[in-house]
């Protein structure tokens, strides 16, 4: 099995994540884009792990999953309090701090 297809898929997922982060204005969607990027990295690590013939990358993917779960807890808490305060989940409304 060649890992190339998986690596291409991972690169595509990562690009979608970056694009989503840059283009979308809803905080939740932006947050989902970040999670997509983390998962793209996971896929790449597992594919490379298979190609290199060791398990390090697969172990790494587990660590990333735990970190991503912690990130969800922190992120949703911050988004929740912002939403409760402003009744808006658009990043364009977060504009009180300026140069």
């Amino acid at each position: 099995m060649s890992p190339n297809a998986y690596l291409v898929l991972s690169a595509i997922l990562f690009s979608i994540g970056v694009l989503g982060f840059l283009i979308r204005r809803n905080v939740l969607i932006i947050f989902m884009s970040v999670e997509l990027m983390l998962n793209a990295a996971n896929l790449a690590m597992v594919a490379f792990s298979y190609a290199n013939g060791n398990l390090l990358g697969q172990v790494g993917a587990f660590f990333v999953m735990v970190v991503a779960a912690a990130e969800v807890v922190i992120g949703l808490a911050i988004i929740m309090i912002i939403f409760k305060t402003r009744r808006s989940a658009s990043v364009d409304d977060q504009n009180q701090l300026k140069h």
Binding site: L38, A41, M45, F48, G53, N54, L56
Partner: peptide, 13 residues
């Protein structure tokens, strides 16, 4: 993290 994955792919560790 994606950078880490790429370096891992190159070095295998």
């Amino acid at each position: 993290l994606y950078g880490i994955a790429l370096v891992f792919g190159y070095a295998g560790s």
